[in-house]
């Protein structure tokens, strides 16, 4: 047994040394949402470490005290049935731990699903992030610009991402700013975040979507509001407008690198939300738009499926 513990110590040491140089991305948050998840992770690690230590101590104790080589040859272990009090303890304490973590889970889940704390009064910046094999398209409807595979956001500003996909299910993830959420072809998901430290952050699709998955990444740059406004103005001065034709070419499978356009694809290829959505609770009026190929007939079937899904 000794070998094992020595060995475990070695692993932990190696791990600490290897990762000691830089903090792990998820535990190095740069905004309130990621800070919440990082705190929750630390709380759960500490709580769970207590459980592991208790089990380890009990196990080591049993193994050393009751090994056959330590017992007299004629020792006959007793017959012991369960005991109400002992079983009360081994049920009761885990229930307390689970109850505690449940409260943590509920509070934090509501927190990360809402506008970041401290930004409630602000009008959020809305960005549509849509994925196609194997790229990300970022549409800024208010600024009337669109980028491919890179994202600029102002710091200290609530950002509301509207996520959807032009094909496979992908998962939008900027570990240092917020947790993931799926982007899917038949509905729009919302993700809230805010960056509080200017800098470059890694963003990627975390959900496997075929051959180009590993490189399905994007770069996030957070900068002060004035620089962000400057950047928007520069684009309007220099970039080409995004036409439907160009956009359809962009959707072809591939990687492309970073691109910038004025205008957004939402004008001619709207996101699957509101009356364009495949699964929404809104009014069943049919839209006239040509691109409206998601669920043309808003019949009762789709409504029913929706309810089952919740």
């Amino acid at each position: 047994m000794k070998l094992k513990w020595t060995f475990l110590t070695i692993i932990i040491t190696i791990a600490t040394v290897l990762t000691g140089c830089e903090p792990l991305l998820v535990l190095d948050p740069k905004g309130p949402q990621a800070a919440t998840t990082a705190n929750v992770i630390w709380i759960s690690i500490i709580t769970m470490a207590i459980v592991v230590v208790v089990v380890l101590v009990m196990l080591t104790n049993m193994l050393f005290k009751y090994r056959a080589s330590k017992q007299p040859d004629d020792y006959e272990p007793p017959h012991i049935e369960g005991n109400k009090y002992v079983e009360g303890i081994i049920v009761g304490i885990p229930i307390l731990i689970v109850a505690f973590l449940s409260v943590v889970s509920i509070i934090s889940t509501y927190q990360v699903e809402a506008t970041p704390e401290g930004y409630e009064d602000q009008e959020p910046l809305v960005i549509y992030a849509s994925s196609s094999n194997w790229k990300w398209h970022f549409s800024y409807p208010e600024q009337d610009i669109e980028t491919v595979n890179y994202l600029f956001i102002p710091t200290n500003q609530a950002v509301e991402f509207r996520l959807y996909s032009h094909g496979t299910i992908t998962s939008f993830w900027i570990p240092q700013l917020a947790g993931q959420k799926y982007a899917m072809a038949d509905m729009v998901n919302t993700l809230h975040l805010a960056a509080e430290v200017p800098g470059d952050y890694m963003g990627r699709n975390a959900n496997f979507n075929g051959e180009g998955f590993a490189e399905n990444t994007f770069n996030v740059t957070a900068m002060p509001q004035t620089e962000f406004d400057q950047w928007v103005d520069d684009i309007h001065a220099t970039a080409d407008p995004l036409t439907e034709e160009t956009f359809n070419e962009l959707l072809e499978p591939g990687h492309l690198g970073q691109m910038t356009f004025t205008g957004t694809h939402l004008e001619f290829a709207p996101a699957p939300e509101g009356e364009n959505g495949g699964h929404h609770h809104g009014s069943p009026d049919d839209s006239e738009e040509e691109t409206h190929d998601h669920d043309d007939e808003h019949d009762s079937d789709s409504e029913e499926t929706e309810h089952e899904n919740h």
Partner: peptide, 12 residues
């Protein structure tokens, strides 16, 4: 199982 933290662990 903690949903908010899972947003960071999911698919990793």
């Amino acid at each position: 199982a903690i949903a908010s933290a899972d947003y960071q662990y999911h698919n990793t």
